[in-house]
Design a protein around this nucleic acid. Structure first.
Lengths: 326, 326
DNA sequence: CTGAAAGCGCTAACAT
DNA sequence: ATGTTAGCGCTTTCAG
């Protein structure tokens, strides 16, 4: 029995007598033969392997993206090397080199911030082997180079959805309590909030309240807000954690939720949104879908070349009790 | 210039004139040469690759373990294929086969439950290539086969630490509100609680309160507890989320925290523990350390053979305001 | 229909 | 000190 024949039998290629093929397969089974994908890669030039570079695997935002990417990459057909750079450019460089040496078919770069990031350093346009560049897809944090392929969330549209929901359920005096002014996410949500209010012929109650991403900030802001703007009947918050603090703060200022004030958060972070009293209506950023789209685009890029530009994923409003009609 | 010479130059092996070596390296740099690790693996038999099988990457418990494993595996020296089985044995099988075909040097299996799990199916004692079995290390959820290598957390000892802390800070009437009775984690924590109380000459206030892993349950239990056992001056909770509910429930029953009642949770899940009022004292399960130990053991197993048996990681008490001395 | 041989990129042993 | 060669395990021609 020659190795060539065995190869054909196991891969169902070439012309073989059915009996021979079955005999080979039986023998392989018997011997516990496991084909060597490394050797196959060497020949085919494809490893069916991708790199997944995460700037903060440890933060919770990192989670849904690999999950979605895995959905797209298939049940182990293509498998991902997960690399957590911990926001360190040195580590990132190191990982990129490692991935290139391992001849990954492509790379997904997942960031945790909305701001555009520098393109991956050290991806040669054409590798020594003479092959084409390794395709790269940026997820959540887009590349600053518009010629790269990025998958992003339309956060401003998410804010619009949230505010439209509040208006539709009868709220008119809407305030916005959010995170640090410096974050692109924060600015996008403020922008969307203003746009939706304008479209409804309304004005924001007071200015946006900028602060930290914490419950403490939410509680503080709620207390200040009810003092300066007692007429407020809804608060759109920049995150679920902030919203949770706002909920407690409002209750302690004597407001009933949702009767007196409705509340909407962002993130749909289950333990926080469901533990909130009342359970929190919130904007889900669809991060898993971001991962899924990034994975799909990467697989396509590997075969057909990169589809440059921005690919946008929509947010989804998850309605819970905190925003029942007044 | 022969390929052999180039190889020696780049890897610093063999005898070469310094000038030749430098010339080769310069040329490699110039051409953007990236060595092919796949080809090297084929020859050396090692891929410097491991599989990281997670039963729920999507749950938050999955997170710190890969983080710690990555610490141990080094900056991309060895890199991990992360596979999320989503608790599906079919997917698991599929991933195991995929990893074996890719000739990973070893596999880490990380579970999210404390109960022992079935050993990985389909790991042949000796692969067709004639090589030795692929080493496997189980993390958090140990293997049911005592001959396997597992890294676990001593959760009972964690409970002991928590209760000892409460006793040391002057509490005498301690209750325990926890999760579902069926969980091994829950039973271990109950056991540790009883052990520590007995050692202090105390009895648990009432029976353990078994329920869900939710805030709602914690709030309900706190209300019931203050009714049936008004003398309670501390509650050890089976999780931070439960503790958070208990905190709110106690406050609404008129208890001041920590003056009247002290509170300790388990998980040290920052957003929950820090958002709690007052911030929550809690038992950190040291999952990152679990991952780090698993990674270290795996690397050692790859070189020197598996160190069978149970390797235990200790918990760590993180003291915050919820347990200030009465 | 099956067997033999070349070659993927690299390293290690040996020859020069 | 450098060049040559064999072979890692596989697939793919091309001959038989």
């Amino acid at each position: 029995m020659s190795v060539g024949t065995a190869s054909k039998a196991l891969n169902g290629r070439g012309q073989l007598r059915a009996e021979t093929r079955d005999r080979v397969r039986a023998a392989a089974q018997e011997l516990g033969f496991v084909p060597n994908a490394v050797a196959a890669s060497l020949l085919s030039g494809r490893t069916y392997t991708v790199g997944l570079i995460m700037t903060d695997h440890h933060g919770r935002f990192g989670l849904p993206i690999p999950h979605g990417a895995e959905d797209a990459l298939g049940w182990g057909e293509t498998v991902a090397f997960v690399c957590d750079t911990r926001d360190d450019p040195i580590r990132e460089q190191h990982y990129v080199r490692s991935l290139l040496r391992r001849r990954v078919d492509g790379i997904i770069v997942a960031g945790r911030r909305t701001e555009a990031r520098l393109p991956l350093a050290g991806i040669p346009a054409s590798m020594a082997a003479g092959g084409p560049a390794v395709p790269v897809v940026y997820a959540f944090a887009r590349s600053a180079d518009a010629g790269d392929c990025s998958v992003v969330v339309d956060e401003a549209a998410g804010a619009v959805t949230a505010v439209e929901h509040l208006v539709r359920t009868g709220r008119r005096r809407i305030a916005h309590v959010t995170g640090p002014h410096g974050h692109a996410s924060v600015r996008a949500r403020v922008e969307g909030t203003h746009r939706a209010l304008r479209a409804a012929g309304l004005d924001l109650v007071g200015e946006p309240w900028y602060g930290g991403w914490s419950e403490v900030w939410g509680r503080f802001a709620a207390a200040a807000l009810t003092r300066s703007h007692p007429e407020v009947d809804a608060v759109f918050c920049g995150s679920d954690v902030i919203a949770r603090g706002v909920a407690d703060g409002l209750r302690e200022s004597g407001r009933r939720l949702p009767d007196d004030v409705a509340l909407v958060g962002v993130d749909n972070w289950a333990p926080v949104a469901e533990g909130c009293r009342p359970p929190l209506t919130t904007v889900d950023l669809n991060l898993r879908e971001v991962g899924r789209v990034a994975g799909t685009l990467l697989l396509r890029a590997i075969v057909h070349g990169t589809e440059a530009g921005l690919h946008t994923v929509a947010c989804r409003l998850v309605v819970r009790a905190s925003s029942a009609p007044a």
